[in-house]
Structures are given as structure tokens and as C-alpha cells.
Design a protein around this nucleic acid. Structure first.
Length: 115
RNA sequence: CCAGACGGUUGGAUGACCGCGCGCAGCACACCGAAAGGGGCUGUGGGAGGAAAGUCCGGGCUCCACGGGAAUACGGUGCCGGGUAACCCCCGGCGAGGGCGACCUUAGGGAAAGUGCCACAGAAAGAAAACCGCCUGCGUUUCGACGUAGGUAAGGGUGAAAGGGUGCGGUAAGAGCGCACCGCUCCAAGGGUAACUGCGGAGGCAAGGUAAACCCCACCGGGAGCAAGACCGAGUAGGGACGAUCAGCGGUUCGGCCGCAGGCGCAUUCCCGCGCUAUCGUCCGGGUAGGUCGCGUGAGGCGUUCGGCAACGAACGUCCCAGAUGAAUGGUCAUCCAUCGCUUCGGCGAGGACAGAACCCGGCUUACAGACCGUCUGGCUUU
RNA sequence: GCCCCUGUAGUUAAAUGGUAUAACACUUGAUUUGUAAUCAUGGAUUGCGGGUUCGAUUCCUGCCGGGGGCA
């Protein structure tokens, strides 16, 4: 919720991404946490689940080792999430991270993330 | 070959890698939690439907209520026979209606038990009825007709519907008044388990429609639903028991034991009455969050044989086949199979119907790209 | 998942089985120099599809949409 309320977000046809940097005092300062949101606009329960799974698969593909630690990321599904080709979906995600200045050029291992 | 009717099957296939939740086996950690309980890794097994949908019927199961029976009320069902655990379901038949036909549709008991309704129009909407018309008698007459007493349902007009239809005879005019044919009602041989059918006979024809209007008759029905229900069980706030301490006044057998006062509640004001009264500790019980079970061997699937026109039943063999709970089936790739578009006929591109289990079964209804199989009807052509 | 309620003009509501009615809003016209007010005027497949009936908003039935409740 804190991430969703923040100002840092970017939208593409495949998804909307919101980012928040955790304060030092919070738990898991070195981890990246990812949350997914799929609203009823997308369709019924099965269509929402499928959109959510596609987003999760996309994040699992892209994320490891490329994102600054200590971030909370919220990925929101849109109508396009269901039918968009997977490679385009990945491109969307990378573009979002770039625009939100979340990509990490240095060496950080993947400390794990929860969703 | 064209057009059509009915029934059934299927609901993309194979493989690879990475994931998801569940079962089983093994291993490890003592990781989360107060507890109940949950979790990690590895291997392995299987993981949506014919409608899983709508929640419209019928059951199982669970809790609640209930001594038995009957009646009433309310709700449902409603041709006959069969099937089934049961049904508003299914099968077979009957009647009625539709179609050239294959075939389809059908809430289809009772209208001489009673009540209601049938708007508008029309004279009249039900044991009826004379508006126009037709005919007869009498009276008047300006010879056109008018008045009056009757007869008459053939004609006109109204309506969804006007109390058989057509023709001939008959008559003052008419009329089942008589006759023929058709229809109808009643009796009824024979057939059929029955619904029903009906050889034959009788009757001049009565009894309009509506019961998905009230109703009558027969039969059936207790209520709620897995968010049912059962077990384990924090914290907080109530409840109970025990112990300790304190009180505005008085008493005291020194026990929160008794009385008074005060406060609060019994809708409100006064009087009376009734009930409860503070703090701390320990224990007990109900119960909430949370957790576990319920939860999948079942009216079960498949196959063969037998009985039955069929629905279905029986016997034998064989198989174990989803179980989530902020809720698992996904992602990517390759080859093929349908489909569509472009095509220089080599290919290229797009792209997969309706739809997603939530306690479980039997039905119904609704949605559905296509593909395949079988039976039958009508028409055309050829032999 | 289960259980209820509801659907009529643009909106809010009526209507014994018998021409779908009213208010507000809207369209068009009249009145006015113009506006308001006033007068006239038009607009509904009764959510959709079947059935019963001579006739259905009403009765029966199947779908569709909207709203509410149950731990």
C-alpha cells in the first residue's frame, strides 16, 4: 500500500509499475519485495489469475541481479496483460524499471524477494 | 447431388525446460507460533468440465424442531404404464395440434359441486335474447306507409366467441320441423395392464369460453444449509469459585459479616419496591481471532455378457481418478492437426469455441469454434 | 459458496387481465423586442424470449441485468 501511494510510477500497455525505496530502519533492507495487483477490470477470477501469473513469470525472468536492493515494487495488471506477447511484456517491464531509475549496474546478488 | 429431420461421439496432439498447489516416501532443521498447528529440501505420482455455469428441481450428509395419528392451512405435482434412492427428471404409449414427409410441440384431471369474469362493440355474452329485417291478424291510411298484438334465429350488422354445418323438402314467413351426408352427445360388442380405441346402435342436438381466475378431487411435502456442523484454542472484555486488602457512618460473634447512606440500572419526575456495587492475585468454564477436521471408495468410472422395444437393471472382471481456502492447472519453445488471410502455388503470416472445481451425487436449463459417426424423409438426375 | 429482493418515458413513481397514467426534465410550435412563466405538441418493443388467454405490465415458465444479506 505504501508503494502504491507513492509518486514513482510508470505505465506501459502491458502493465503499470510503482516503486518505493524502503527506509533504512525497516526489515530486509537489502531485499527486493514485489507485489502484484490485478483488478476486476481485467476479467473474472481465472483471467485475473492468469494475468498475475504472467506478470510473475515476467518478473522472475527479468529481475534477478538487475535491480537496486531495498526497493518495494508493485506491478499492476492491465487489460493488455492477458493478450500481449511475452517478450513484449518483458520489454515493458525493463522499460518501466529504466524510467523509474530502479536498474542496478553494479554487482549485487539476488538476496531473494517476496511477492 | 440438393434441401431437411433425428440421435450419438469428441471438445486440438506429441515432446522439452522452468514454475504452482496436493498426495506418498526419504532426509534435515529445531525455523514461525503462547498453544493448537504450520513450515524446508530431494525423489516420485497424479492435477478442471460437458457444461465445472445458472442455482431451477430431487436426494445424500449435518444441525435444529418434534410422543403417535388425523384434520385444517400453506406450497407443489396433475393423461396412462414403466424406470429410479428420489424428482417439476427419463423411457414407452394414448389423446390433441402442426408439417407433403422424416418428425416436432403439448401444465393434457374436473366447467351437469359452486362462485367469479368475458372490456369495447353488439338487441342479446348464457337454462339468454327480437335492433334492422321477414310473415300473419286487427286498426288507421294522404295507398307511400304507420300503429298495435303475435310468429320467426333464414338474412343484415357487432364481436375472439351468437346455442351444429351444407343441400333438399317444408312453411304465411321460418325453424332438426322432416330427410341425406358430415359433425356432436349417450349406450356399447370386441381389443388393450391402463390412458384410450371403438364394430354396432340410439338421440334431432342438449351442456359457450376461462381452473398458468377462485375452487373441487387425488397424491406429495417439518425447517435450515458445508459460511451446515465437530474438535483444539491466544489476547482483551464479561461470568463463576477461592484467597487477600480497603471503605462515608454505625454495629460486630472481628467474617466484606450486618444495617444505613451514596452511586448506577429497571424509558421519564416523586414515593415505594427490586437488582448490582471497590482493588489485587490464583483457578475454572463458555466463547472470539487463529488452527484442524468435515474433504472424497462414491446411488463411482471403464469393459464384457445377460434381461428389457427403451429408460434401466443384474452378474462378472478391472481401476482409484483434483481437493485449493487472499484460493493451485501457468510461462516459453519445437513439430504436427483443424481454421482464416495473402500467394509468384514454392510458401509466408495470423491463430485455437463456450468457458475454470470449492461438500458430494441424479436431472433440467442456458453458452459453445469446429470435427466425426449413424438412422431416416422430400426433391432432381441416371440405371 | 449459499440465501433473498428488484427491473415501466431521460428521472421518480402509478396502473382489477381490457387505449400503459402522472410529476419533473427534454423536443417542436405559439405568446414576448428577448428570457422566464403560460398554452399547445411529440417521445415507452413495460429488461429479453416462449406459453395460457379473444386480449398479458399483470398469470406461468426460461434467460439477462441491478441491489442486499450470511463467517
Amino acid at each position: 500500500m505504501a508503494a502504491a501511494g507513492g509518486k514513482r510510477k510508470w505505465a506501459t500497455p502491458g502493465m503499470v509499475v510503482q516503486v518505493r525505496t524502503r527506509r533504512p530502519g525497516e526489515d530486509g533492507a537489502s531485499m527486493v519485495r514485489v507485489g502484484f495487483t490485478t483488478s476486476r477490470k481485467i476479467g473474472n477470477a481465472v483471467q485475473r489469475n492468469r494475468a498475475r501469473r504472467r506478470l510473475r513469470a515476467c518478473v522472475d525472468d527479468v529481475l534477478p541481479g538487475r535491480v537496486k536492493p531495498g526497493l518495494d515494487i508493485v506491478v499492476i495488471g492491465r487489460l493488455g496483460t492477458r493478450d500481449r506477447p511475452f517478450s513484449a511484456l518483458k520489454d515493458d517491464f525493463v522499460q518501466c524499471l529504466k524510467k523509474l531509475d530502479a536498474l542496478d549496474n553494479g554487482e549485487h546478488g539476488t538476496q531473494g524477494f517476496t511477492s
